[in-house]
């Protein structure tokens, strides 16, 4: 019972790629679902809800966060002439990344 309430069996309503023209929808059909669950699990109050468009925007924002982390790490590795992006490269860009978001 609890499980059903938590996850539900109903399919989430999704807008198609054509109707939104949103790239993120086409690449990751379940991303919106995951993001809304992720944010909902962090809310302090149970009654807080997440609007549909707000979820889409947050999915976009989190994707940009990850891309930004990846690109900055890549740049750092490039400047040190390394073939593999290692943890030290990520460590160097992390403080500025967190300040920018």
């Amino acid at each position: 019972m609890f499980f059903q309430r938590q996850f539900g069996t109903r399919k989430p309503r999704r807008r198609t790629h054509a109707s939104t023209g949103c790239k993120i929808r086409a690449c990751y059909p379940y991303l919106q679902d995951t993001v809304s669950k992720l944010l909902a699990s962090f809310f302090k109050e149970d009654k807080t809800r997440l609007g549909g468009d707000a979820t889409l925007l947050m999915a976009d924002m989190l994707k940009i966060f990850v891309q930004e982390a990846a690109v900055r790490s890549l740049k750092q590795a490039e400047s040190e002439d390394c073939d593999q992006v290692d943890i030290e490269h990520f460590e160097k860009i992390l403080p500025q990344l967190l300040l920018d978001f």
Binding site: L38, F43, A70, L74, A77, Q84, V85, I87, F90
Partner: peptide, 23 residues
């Protein structure tokens, strides 16, 4: 260029915590 698995895990963990802050 390849990303080491450690970096992927670190970015994932950072994203997760950032998500907490955002929420």
């Amino acid at each position: 260029r390849r990303f080491s698995r450690q970096v992927v895990a670190a970015i994932a963990e950072t994203t997760f915590r950032q998500c907490d802050i955002f929420a």
